[in-house]
Design a protein around this nucleic acid. Sequence first.
RNA 1: GGUCGCGUGGCCGAGUGGCUAGGCAGAGGUCUGCAAAACCUCGUACAGCGGUUCGAAUCCGCUCGCGACCUCCA
Length: 497
Amino acid sequence: MKPHQLKLYNTLSRQKEDFAPINPPFVGMYVCGPTVYGDAHLGHGRPAVTFDTVNRYLTHLGYRVRYVRNITDVGHLQGDADEGEDKIAKKAKLEQLEPMEVAQQYTDTYHRDMALLNTWKPSIEPRATGHIPEQIALVEAILAEGLAYEVNGSVYFDVLKYNESYAYGKLSGRVLDDLMAGSRTLDGQDEKRNAADFALWKNASPEHLMKWDSPWGKGFPGWHLECTAMSSKYLGTNFDIHGGGMDLLFPHHECEIAQGNACNHHDPAKYWMHNNMITINGQKMGKSLGNFINLQELFTGSHKLLEQAYSPMTIRYFMLTAHYRSTLDFSNDALKAAQKGYKKLINGLRIARMLEFAPDEAVALDQNQIQQIESSIAAAYRAMDDDFNTAQAIGHLFNLLKKINSIFTGQLTAAALGEEVFAKLKDTFITFVVDILGLVEEKGDTQGGMLELLLKLYAEAKTARDYAKVDEIRSGLKALGFVVKDMKEKIDWAYEE
RNA sequence: GGUCGCGUGGCCGAGUGGCUAGGCAGAGGUCUGCAAAACCUCGUACAGCGGUUCGAAUCCGCUCGCGACCUCCA
């Protein structure tokens, strides 16, 4: 493989940088996972697909990726000032379950949905509740550095003191003075010395369900701490890529940087990557707006905003047709177009796999075609090397697909490309679709050899000029979602688009 | 209010100084018993106004519109 200079956009520097792992060929990547108190929704799908693709491409380039994605099963409070219940406890009461039953249930459905989206499992998937001692140790370390203080069994990070030696706000581009001035005064914040301080450990009220013993009494960890604890445990205190949604940029990731520096005197991660948000019909997806669409609702078409069901692969394809740093708008029109595009691509995958090279001395090499194919292949890689531009890469794949279809229908002969270019065309297309983009045939429902049998009968009826029978078979198959491809030299089928 | 981002042809969506993005929809054609699939051809797109430049969708300024974060959310 030719050398690649992968570039990725680093939120920390606000520009694209050459990717250079700390310890090649190893790459450590930490991505913020879900808080498991409800079904996985579109907002969980996007980062999962984004960083799955990063994982896949890095792996394709030969890196050995350790991908860590956490499960947050501690129900953090809605805010520091909130004296009420956390999200998991609330759900647990509602459903009359143990908090850990809630966490287990939604961890399971999350896994199911992520598998449907064909995302690779993380190398390590640590749970917050499994790392309470590590989190307590971090709090102690930050206290020892003099960058935190205890009040009434709670421990807060001293942002002002930290900012004397480090730059708080450098990731999100915030200025501490502005933060102080702009922050609202919330009830119950009197424990904190400054509004910008954040909780490392919270004292638990007696009715609080999920709590642990600590040097400061019974309590639970602050909501930024688990990621610092788990990333440093499994990837070290200085790893390559930290990913997550843009909404986590502030305060979550800013606080992770602060915690990392407070403990280790250096940043936790070299590159920070953030996927952009999803909108529904141009509007922000928000719990309060009633337009949260669960992945299962999308797959079954059961949400009131949806006109039909959209398969997991359609969703994955749709997400990949936009760059991960752009907002992506979900609408029925866009999804229907994506469904057709996906099927066109996946029908091409079937074709590509069937193609075999047939030497033909009588056919001269077609340099024009060869040049077009070589150039599309190079462009597809260039797109991926440029901050994982899957949208652009897919555009080039469609150009390759035209060549593949042309060979299949006989409008272009493989011999005209030469064996080497032909193999490169076939391999590149299949590798990109299956390995890099993670798009697979999902129907798989071709009824064993029955489809082939019906096509054989179709061909026989056609030879016998029994057009009534021909039409019957054709419309019958169409009703089942298969299209008969009746070509000059042969007959095949495709998934109906 | 503070910080940041966006506005591309009927729709979605790449592109960030000169080089065809692509998909969907639409029109014409090849093929076909007729179709479908596939392939070929077809769109004088870059919110508006000014500026920089030989040249701008791409850089700068202003205006209008939309959004994100600052508060739980991916």
